[in-house]
């Protein structure tokens, strides 16, 4: 009985941030010391559709950036990680791939900002996507490094022995076998891009208004209801992915 109560209390604790954000997103007026908003309204959510508010635009922009990064990075990192994984210097390459994370993406962006400015990419959607490539691509390579193992090598050898070409090995064997890992990597890279703030602010110089920037903008404007709404919109895709398959949010290609 006590164990069951503890379990439900723990689940309630895990879900509390979502309920709290949702509450604020439907609220208007939250004067101290009220625990709940003074008014409940759908107006904030209607705001998404209004073109002047820019929140709907930010949702579409964030989707465009995240999809535009996740698709090519998943495919490129799948291809490149094979060479990295089978290289005699595998460990060294993988250490290099970890560096952008160890240094912090925002520090990397600070060091690269001048190049983007001179290349005319500063403040542009393309620039933000290119910058995100520099942190998501190494992640993809690390992700797939668990996939390329002796079993995959043996499969490729079998295809070659049976007269298949390298392209056939990819199309008929490796990609179908890697389908689940490719999906997982795609969604995880989508989420890294979707959650990105520091690098996007620096390279986008505040002009590329993705959803994360909107949250910060509304916080600065002390509009907590729209900040909560933008937060809800940010949280929605990963929650949907969790319902579909929790591996999409937390897992490596080797199933770890």
């Amino acid at each position: 009985m006590a164990g069951r109560f503890l379990k439900y209390a723990f689940i309630a604790l895990l879900l509390f941030p979502f309920a709290f954000l949702l509450m604020l997103s439907f609220g208007r007026g939250w004067g101290y010391p009220h625990v709940f908003p003074e008014q409940w309204t759908l107006e904030n959510w209607r705001f998404i559709l209004e073109s002047q508010a820019g929140l709907g635009h930010s949702v579409l922009l964030s989707l465009l950036v995240s999809l535009g990064v996740a698709v090519p990075v998943t495919l490129a990192s799948f291809w490149v990680s094979r060479a990295v994984s089978y290289s005699p210097y595998r460990r060294r390459w993988l250490v290099l791939a970890y560096l952008p994370y160890v240094l912090a993406p925002v520090v990397l962006a600070a060091c690269l900002q001048a190049f983007f400015f001179r290349g005319g990419l500063s403040g542009k959607v393309w620039g933000v996507m290119a910058a995100q490539l520099f942190i998501t691509f190494p992640y993809g390579v690390i992700f797939f490094s668990g996939f390329w193992n002796r079993r995959m090598q043996a499969m490729e050898q079998l295809v070659a022995t049976l007269g298949g070409s390298r392209a056939q090995a990819y199309i008929r064997v490796l990609i179908p076998v890697a389908r689940e890992a490719l999906m997982t990597c795609f969604f995880q890279i989508f989420l890294i891009s979707w959650f990105e703030y520091g690098l996007t602010t620096l390279i986008g110089v505040g002009k590329v208004q993705t959803l994360t920037l909107k949250v910060f903008q509304y916080v600065n404007e002390a509009n907590i209801f729209l900040a909560a709404l933008a937060g809800c919109l940010l949280v929605l895709p990963p929650v949907v992915l969790l319902w579909l398959n929790r591996r999409y949010v937390f897992s490596g290609a080797g199933g770890r």
Binding site: I11, L14, L15, P17, F18, F20, L21, W194, F195, Y197, T212, V215, F216, V219, A227, A228, G231, L234, V235, P238, V239, L241, L242, R246, V249, F250
Partner: peptide, 16 residues
């Protein structure tokens, strides 16, 4: 449900 907090980005967690 233990996975759910992983769906919250740092900026939203900070706001929360």
């Amino acid at each position: 449900f233990i996975y759910f907090p992983l769906a919250i980005p740092a900026i939203v967690m900070a706001f929360f």
